[in-house]
Design a binder for these strands. Structure first.
Length: 186
DNA sequence: CATTTGATGTTCT
DNA sequence: GAACATCAAATGC
């Protein structure tokens, strides 16, 4: 679970709609565990129409609306009825940069273009319409470029924005490459 | 520069 | 009604 979150860093997240391809290298992830992690929406078997996606088999996208405005993208990583997911918090733009700039309504490629959970989904055109989409299809998928980071090259810190989770907010389940600029601010 | 505030939907009380 | 896995624009130094 936590291992999967580490392995996802350095892989390439791709989306393709209407013949337009956009992609980026994953530079920041957070692990969320459905059992014993108060920061997870589906902790302790909490099932709602929103979190139902997390209880499905792994290898699909869990996308939900946060604060009524932002779409956050997660990868479901466990088997059916085990609600585990990895939140992708930031990417480094790769292909289709001009499309991302257009979607984000900006002109220059800077970290603020895709560094942040709400930002990367906007740049890639991901919305809740793609919730439960399989990540092995041709709409949203993850490419292995073979340049994964060793646990030594990865910084390990507390997760962001989950202070309400008490002790569980201190779990070191946020990962990003040491020295990378494509990281969400805080 | 730092801090505050508005937008906004889903879920739980 | 309150809180929430957030961001950008406005305000105050």
């Amino acid at each position: 679970m936590v291992t999967i979150a580490q392995q996802l860093v350095g892989k390439v997240l791709c989306t393709q709609f209407d013949g337009t391809l956009t992609s980026g290298v994953i530079t920041e992830t957070e692990a969320y565990c459905g059992r014993g992690d108060k920061a997870c929406h589906a902790n302790d078997g909490t099932r709602t129409s929103r979190t139902e996606t997390m209880y499905q088999d792994g290898g699909i996208a869990y996308i939900y609306l946060c604060y009524g405005i932002h779409h956050l993208f997660n990868v479901v990583t466990n088997i059916q009825d085990k609600a585990d997911a990895v939140l992708v918090r930031a990417i480094e733009p790769l292909e289709g940069q001009s499309t991302m700039l257009k979607r984000r309504n900006s002109e220059k490629v800077t970290p603020s273009l895709t560094a942040g959970p709400g930002r990367l989904t906007q740049a890639l055109g991901i919305t809740t319409d793609f919730d439960t989409t399989s990540l092995t299809g041709d709409t949203i998928w993850i490419k292995d470029r073979g340049n994964s980071f060793s646990s030594n090259g990865l910084a390990k810190t507390q997760r962001v924005g989950v202070d309400y989770a008490g002790e569980d907010a201190k779990l070191p389940w946020r990962f990003y490459p040491r020295g990378s600029k494509w990281i969400s601010q805080k």
